[in-house]
Design a protein around this nucleic acid. Structure first.
Lengths: 234, 234
DNA sequence: AGAAATTTGTTCGTATGTATT
DNA sequence: GAATACATACGAACAAATTTC
């Protein structure tokens, strides 16, 4: 095994063993390199690999630190994967989201605080105002859409579940979904579905919330790839 | 933004734009560094970051190549995240698996080829032979358990779904689960659950498979953290 | 406010191990 | 087996940013 990989594993192990804790500062490059018996340039490549995994973080002139290691942070490299497979694979990501998001929405029904329910209402109002405009700003709609789902899912009580869902639809895919809604009716339908989920949450009705969330993601899926039954399949 | 990050983004963009395709060889370090206007060491750190993301792969004496970029490959960095949260967070990963695995198992019921069903049977037989032994080899049981679930899930028809499930239970967690089964009865129960899933797949019964898979993962979850209801009040 | 010390960022040069031809 | 091409690794130096005095 290469020297760099060994250095990466050593640092990883130091974290797993608790010798390096979240937020803690690492020894300076010169010292750590000597401690691991490698050159500074070699250590830097190891550190760079861990930075890519969101495990470490560096600040020039200050030092290198262990990140919070929260699932939300460590799992958000997945969105790049989702963006890479914009073409055929996008459906597979969306399918995973269709399985997870209804469950997370149901869980959130019992946990989301009233204050955030109010925020959800505001987001919906703003989206509907935007959609009513003649020149629809797709960019802002995408952002509002993301905020809406993100806020709900973040209250499911499971940070891993929230992070995975969040990354199953990268920016590119989300943007493509809304861009595909040239039909104003499609936009209106999406907003209606959002409001249905919102009302279920307001009523603290987990099962209604689950069903509406499922229906919504399924609708998005079908808008990307119309079911073959419509076009006269086999 | 730093020079290294720019280099990483440039290479990423080259892949997204199709200028670099899966399996393709990159220019040699010297040339690529010059093309990006950075030093060789700097380029190496950028490449190292992309290697950590499983996007690139290097072979000494040969060159640097773009990987297959398959979801299964790119998402398998998550298992490290799962291993990092061995303590409290492990339950959250398992919960996600409980949501996804029943669905994947149900999907596999219609797709898994007869040949692999036979392999599943062999895996079960071997596991039961191992469990009958007085000195149970937990290491081998863990491996068989992983093979069993992996084989089923790999036939769900969705590579992303399969990869996410696969990484929701890292080696460390899986090992801990089996190590925790000091009670021979617990091992037997797990094997019975496996066989129930297997029989449902044999019958190509998706709904039965889904339920047995859900029950199985739930059992694992509860073995790790007994439900509070059993041990007395809240 | 400003200078010095500290730390990461970046570059160049060189030597070595490995795979291909 | 020899030559070539390439990644690997090391060492030294300077630049840029931050903290400290």
């Amino acid at each position: 095994m290469g020297v760099i990989e060994s250095a990466v594993d050593t640092i990883k192990q130091m974290i797993i063993d608790g010798k390096l804790r979240p937020g803690q500062k690492l020894p300076v490059e010169k010292d750590l390199a000597e401690q691991l018996g490698v050159a500074r340039n070699t250590l830097r490549e190891a550190v760079r690999a861990l930075i890519a995994m969101r495990v470490l973080q560096t600040r020039q002139g200050d030092g290198t630190y262990v990140t919070s290691l929260s699932p939300g942070l460590l799992l958000d490299g997945m969105s790049f994967v989702a963006d890479l497979h914009q073409d055929a694979g996008a459906m597979e990501f969306l399918h995973v989201r269709r399985i997870l998001e209804p469950e997370a929405t149901a869980l959130a029904a019992a946990r989301i605080p009233d204050a955030d329910l109010a925020v959800l209402g505001d987001l919906l109002d703003e989206a509907e105002r935007l959609a009513a405009d003649s020149a629809v700003d797709h960019g802002k709609l995408v952002a509002l859409d993301q905020d809406f789902h993100s806020l709900i899912v973040s209250h499911c009580g499971n940070a891993v579940l929230a992070a995975v869902i969040q990354n199953m639809s990268g920016r590119t895919v989300r943007a493509r979904i809304w861009r595909g809604m040239t039909d104003p009716e499609a936009v209106q339908r999406t907003l209606r579905e959002h409001r249905a989920v919102y009302r279920a949450l307001l009523a603290r009705d987990a099962e209604r919330a689950r069903l509406h969330a499922a229906l919504h993601v399924l609708g998005v899926e079908e808008s990307l790839s119309p079911p073959s039954g419509d076009a006269g399949g086999e």
